[in-house]
Nucleic acid binder design. Structure first.
Length: 646
DNA sequence: ACGGTTCGTACA
DNA sequence: TTGTACGAA
């Protein structure tokens, strides 16, 4: 359920940018003959012409909709071009669209904080850039700026304003005919005055000016996207994510829309409740059916208490706020996806009915997943930690309870074969739970695997791995070259060691430790065992004593209460191995380890080759004063390095 | 018996 | 923390 975030009191400038029928545009770029023609992208042509997943605006005029089959589309629009999604390993392969999306993100992320919201959408926080523009522009330039801003659609004006520069975009992209263009331009000219009147009115709001600057920045970004990728997009500009998202699709394609604060109330009152993000599903239906709320305006008559009563504290306050256009959700600074997944459905007769066919498909899915996390590692220096298997299943039996196939996870080991093995084990475990004691027939209607808990490889990892691995190794993860990585001071003087990348590393499944009631590798212990084992095998750290010298203090809570801290630290100077391995939930729970460089015994360092020594010394920098946040002073967390704080 | 595929979040 | 349910595109 949604939850309200504390909203900053300073007004922000937020944009939501949405590519126009993105997959179609990607295909049109690949084959320019498709431009300006009714086109749709379909996957799986074998049954009823395949399912449509993107429809060009020309085709929409004929009534072609997503969720139609190819055959239906042909019925209502005989001239439609149906382009198939690429297929690899007998399944849809979306990589071309992913990388096209990355091209766009690379451009859109240049003017402020940027959050990749999906393969074809981003949020931008342009507050700083807008303020800068407003501050640094001399008065005579301001007039020009506002003139630029008149090229956006602005909510709450007497009527909709068409956009001059968007006209150019539209005519480039869609081959608009001269008559149309002329009438649009006339439209702009007619309405431009009222926009200028709005922007330059005596009491023009500081917030409105900021939004105007934001609109200009977004317009420029969109032009740049068009120039460099040939893709058009639409955008919404507002003071928060919710409103920006709400209007980004209001004027499509290739246009943008601004929401001044003054227009929010009028805009929202008549808006159907189901149009709001997060209210398109059951929660929205409940509002309609149980409370008789059909528009956002209807929500206004409910007190916050009443809403909390119905939907709980979190959702209640969230509802109360969004009805008033209030949303504090921040734009996250993230250009890459948080997880990678791939899956396939096996509808009806295609359902998988035995282990062999499951294995065949699982192997294919894992192969793709492995490739994707591998390229994420190579290109972005990121490592995924968790492998999860999902499936949907039917049991062929009599009166059947609607039981779900449970999802299962384990630590992710790199390497296609390892992933395949682990995924199959996960499947067997899930199947076991699913079937219970019964011994009935089953069939699988969908399978998917995903890699999650992805984080950046911190500085220092690569060289250690290179060294331990040996310079001549050709095994992929060891080929990491992070030498070009920028230093990130927020990570502190820590040495990270990520096992599971090493061939020597034989974690999890084979160890069969008795930590659970099934054979699924448990995340908690496996990583621990394997890194210790691994370290003990390394030529550098072959003796147990040396390992202990590496791990020389106990992980305390990140922000433990001050009085006991010193004492705790002292008491835990030496870590009992058993305790270390099986410690509580917040310590050993992952396969990545983080040490303070200062905690490494100098004697150990001396045994390392000179170049590694130099590197380690390079990590040791004077303590930083800047941040008020106190980082763990010892082996802090075994999990993700704390989020980058700057 | 699902439009298919991928993603993200909140909650128990 | 893992698994689940839900929502969106």
């Amino acid at each position: 359920m949604p939850v309200a975030r504390p909203e900053p009191q300073e007004p922000r400038v937020i944009a939501h940018v949405d590519m126009d029928c993105f997959y179609v545009q990607v295909e049109q770029r690949r084959n320019p003959e498709l431009r300006g023609q009714p086109t749709a992208v379909v996957q799986y042509n074998d049954w009823k012409g395949g399912g449509l997943i993107a429809v060009s605006y020309e085709a929409r005029k004929f009534g072609v909709k997503r969720s139609m089959r190819g055959d239906e589309a042909k019925m209502v629009c005989p001239s439609i071009n149906l382009v198939q999604v690429p297929v690899a390993r007998d399944k849809a392969d979306l990589n071309v669209y992913r990388s096209a999306g990355s091209e766009v993100v690379a451009i859109l992320s240049t003017k402020g904080k940027c959050e990749r919201a999906s393969i074809d959408e981003v949020y931008l926080d342009l507050t700083d850039a807008a303020k800068e523009m407003l501050l640094e522009s001399p008065p005579e330039l301001l007039e020009l700026i506002f003139e630029e801003a008149t090229k956006s659609n602005i909510l709450g004006l007497p009527s909709v304003i068409f956009v001059l520069h968007d006209l150019i975009v539209v005519s480039l992209q869609f081959d608009m005919n001269v008559t149309n263009r002329a009438s649009y331009v006339q439209d702009v000219i007619n309405r431009e005055d009222s926009v200028r009147a709005w922007l330059c009115r005596a009491d023009a709001d500081y917030q409105d000016k900021l939004l105007s600057c934001g609109a200009i920045i977004v317009a420029q970004l969109r032009v740049k996207v068009l120039e460099e990728t040939q893709f058009t997009c639409s955008a919404g500009i507002a003071h928060n994510k919710m409103l920006a998202k709400l209007v980004s699709g209001m004027h499509k394609p290739a246009q943008q829309t601004v929401v001044p604060s003054s227009a929010v109330q009028d805009f929202l009152v008549s808006l159907p409740i189901k149009k709001m993000k997060q209210l398109g599903g059951k929660l929205g239906s409940s509002l309609q059916d149980d409370l008789g709320v059909n528009t956002v305006g209807d929500l206004l008559s409910f007190t916050e208490d009443k809403l909390q009563e119905y939907y709980g504290v979190n959702t209640g306050t969230w509802l109360w706020k969004i009805a008033r256009g209030i949303s504090g959700e921040e734009v996250e600074d993230r250009l890459l996806p948080k997880s990678h997944g791939c899956g396939k459905t096996f509808p009806g007769p295609k359902a998988l009915k035995n282990n062999a066919s499951v294995k065949t498909w699982l192997d294919r899915l894992c192969e793709e997943l492995s490739e994707r996390i591998q390229s994420d590692l190579n290109q972005n220096k990121r490592i995924a930690q968790t492998l999860t298997l999902y499936a949907r299943a039917c049991r062929k039996n009599k009166s059947d309870s609607i039981k779900k196939f449970p999802s299962k996870s384990c630590p992710l080991r790199y390497g296609t074969v390892k992933i395949q093995e682990d995924a199959m084990k996960l499947f067997e475990s899930g199947l076991h739970d699913f079937l219970g004691s019964q011994n009935t027939k089953w069939s699988i209607t969908s399978l998917s695997v995903s890699a999650s808990k992805i984080f950046d490889i911190p500085i220092g990892t690569s060289s250690i791995l290179r060294y331990i691995k040996g310079p001549n190794s050709t095994v992929s993860p060891a080929n990491l070259d992070c030498s070009s990585l920028p230093e990130d001071p927020s990570l502190g003087n820590k040495l990270y060691i990520a096992p599971n990348h090493e061939e020597h590393c034989e974690p999890s499944l084979s160890e069969k430790e008795d930590y659970g009631n099934n054979n699924v590798p448990l995340q908690m212990v496996q990583g621990t065992c394997s890194i210790l084992k691994f370290l003990s095998q390394s030529p550098v750290l072959s003796e147990k004593r040396k390992i202990d010298s590496l791990i020389c203090s106990h992980p305390g809570p990140e922000s433990s209460s001050e009085p006991n801290k010193a004492e705790e630290h002292k008491a835990a100077q030496y870590v009992d191995r058993k305790k270390f391995n099986t410690a509580g939930s917040n310590s050993a729970s992952s396969s990545t380890w983080m040490f303070n460089v200062e905690d490494i015994d100098p004697a150990v360092v001396e045994e390392l080759p000179p170049e590694i020594q130099r590197e380690i010394h390079g990590w040791i920098r004077p303590p930083k004063q800047s941040s008020s946040k106190t980082r763990g002073s010892t082996i802090s967390s075994y999990f993700q390095p704390a989020k980058r704080s700057g």
